[in-house]
């Protein structure tokens, strides 16, 4: 299998789906002539033209709403938020319109739309540009929420998101765009189903559930723990709504321990939801309370030494695993 960067995998997904279906178009700030603020859409304008790669003014509520209206009328828009931080000014469009109209119209209107862009902290971009947004969107019935960790998942899930008949929140990662990983060869089409978790690393001593940027922190921590004789099994939910708990529950029944590692704030969100579901479904198998390693409960500071404290670290993951394994 070839190696692709995360951003290239996303670009391929959009390229293939736009070539396949005339109804698919990309709209957002700097997606066309600028070639994408993070170069995810590089080359798409040249291939598909201004009709289908639409640069917008800075007006997230406006173009999110235009996308929703276009989807209601039968198109399949991909709306790029330059970062998910800017989606907050379009929150009403997503919550009150995209997520509601299917049921509000008793199923008469579908909204096949993908909202995508980088989510979470980058590096030293401070409080307003570092939001990890999954908790906001996973709370809302009427939306799918996907947060892929690897290039392969990014491509396969974005293709499924574009083909979905529902509004999809697609949370990428600015720090993940340059990450390389295996992606099926050209001509091999892979659609990864929405709502399926993935066993990342088999192990027997402790289950770690993680996704997004901390996925890589966890894998590094698992290697170190392995050297100390603690063998971790890692599960990536990939889709956060609907949440597939099957693999994590099976894993916990085997390891009897679980640590959930995520970038978002600790209050609520998919991290807390996973703890709730796993403890109920695997209660009799648990040898320790579930632990969470999360982004700290503070707005993101600018200074690097502080930012490093806020985001989940290998050290905090290792400590948490040792605590549930009573190995510290």
């Amino acid at each position: 299998m070839r190696q692709l960067r995360y951003r290239e995998a996303l670009r391929e997904a959009m390229f293939e789906e736009m070539a396949r279906d005339e109804r698919v178009f990309l709209m957002g700030e700097e997606v066309g002539h600028y070639q994408g603020a993070y170069k995810v859409s590089e080359g798409l304008l040249e291939k598909f033209g201004e009709r289908r790669v639409v640069d917008t003014p800075i007006a997230e509520a406006g173009f999110a709403g235009v996308g929703i209206g276009a989807a209601m009328a039968g198109l399949r828009p991909i709306i790029e938020f330059m970062t998910w931080n800017f989606s907050f000014v379009a929150f009403d469009q997503i919550i009150s319109n995209a997520a509601k109209v299917h049921q509000m119209s008793a199923g008469a209107i579908q909204v096949p739309i993908v909202f995508r862009g980088p989510n979470g902290a980058a590096k030293q971009v401070a409080a307003q540009h570092s939001h990890s947004c999954a908790p906001f969107y996973t709370n809302i019935p009427g939306l799918y929420v996907i947060q892929p960790s690897t290039p392969r998942d990014a491509k396969g899930l974005l293709k499924s998101a574009i083909r979905s008949n529902n509004p999809v929140i697609f949370l990428e990662g600015e720090t993940l765009y340059g990450v390389k990983g295996e992606v099926p060869d050209e001509g091999v089409e892979e659609l990864i189903p929405i709502g399926e978790s993935r066993l990342v690393r088999p192990g027997s001593d402790c289950t770690i559930v993680t996704w997004g940027r901390p996925y890589y922190t966890v894998l590094a921590a698992a290697e170190k723990l392995s050297a100390e004789g603690i063998d971790c099994e890692v599960v990536d939910p990939r889709t956060l709504r609907p949440l597939d708990t099957r693999l994590m529950v099976e894993s916990v029944k085997k390891t009897n321990r679980c640590v959930v590692v995520h970038e978002h704030w600790p209050y609520g969100g998919p991290g807390a939801e996973i703890v709730d579901q796993v403890q109920r479904e695997a209660f009799d198998y648990l040898d320790a309370p579930l632990e969470r390693v999360t982004g700290l409960d503070v707005p993101m500071p600018y200074a690097l030494n502080l930012e490093d404290k806020v985001l989940p670290t290998e050290e905090r993951v290792i400590d948490a695993v040792k605590r549930v394994a009573y190995a510290s």
């Binding site: 509520a61 996308g67 929703i68 209206g69 276009a70 209601m72 009328a73 198109l75 319109n97 209107i109």
Partner: peptide, 21 residues
Amino acid sequence: LGGWAIVGGHLALAAGTAFKS
């Protein structure tokens, strides 16, 4: 395509169906 109950929230939707046209 609907009655909408957030003031100002449906104007962009209308621009969206017009965009589709």
